[in-house]
């Protein structure tokens, strides 16, 4: 990306803001059972923080999460989701039937753990894909990823 909006104020603000956005995303995904939130929202928050860094710092921020890392994340999300779905086969359940996992908890708690796992998968996948789309659109001038 050629042009940036870089200025010392924006630079410091974005650097300060990004870790708190990640913290908030972690809260949103982990606390998604009890309060508004979930995987999609957390993924979008992570992607927004990365895109903020990209916008403010331009090429300097490319090392925060490279496009290849974003592609890896985008692949990892559906893999984690489907992996949890398939893992329940091995304990005698159906696809995505989290209740069969042998955790020493209440049955509903076990299901909540499975739900948390796939929410993390959704968050990782959505964050990776959104950063990937932004990079693909922002760097078409250079022709490189």
């Amino acid at each position: 990306m050629r042009s940036t909006f870089g200025s010392p104020v924006l630079d410091a603000a974005a650097r300060l803001l990004a870790p708190f956005m990640w913290l908030f995303a972690a809260y949103v995904v982990i606390h998604g059972h009890e309060s508004p939130g979930g995987g999609f929202q957390a993924g979008v928050i992570v992607a927004a923080s990365i895109i903020l860094l990209r916008l403010v710092r331009g090429r300097l921020a490319a090392s925060v999460l490279t496009s290849r890392d974003a592609l890896t994340l985008a692949c990892l999300g559906p893999l984690l989701y489907g992996g949890i779905g398939i893992a329940s086969f091995f304990f005698g359940g159906n696809f995505l039937d989290y209740g069969v996992f042998p955790f020493p908890m209440e049955p509903s708690e076990v299901r909540a753990m499975g739900t948390l796992g796939i929410e993390i998968g959704v968050a990782v996948g959505v964050a990776g894909v959104l950063v990937l789309i932004f990079d693909a659109l922002a760097r078409w001038e250079d022709g490189t990823l």
Binding site: G32, H33, E34, S35, P36, G37, G38, G39, E106, S108, E109, V110, R111, A112, T115, I118, E119, V122
Partner: peptide
């Protein structure tokens, strides 16, 4: 499902 958030319960 152990989720107080019904939207999460339905979605996930």
């Amino acid at each position: 499902t152990g989720a107080a958030n019904y939207v999460t319960a339905v979605l996930a």
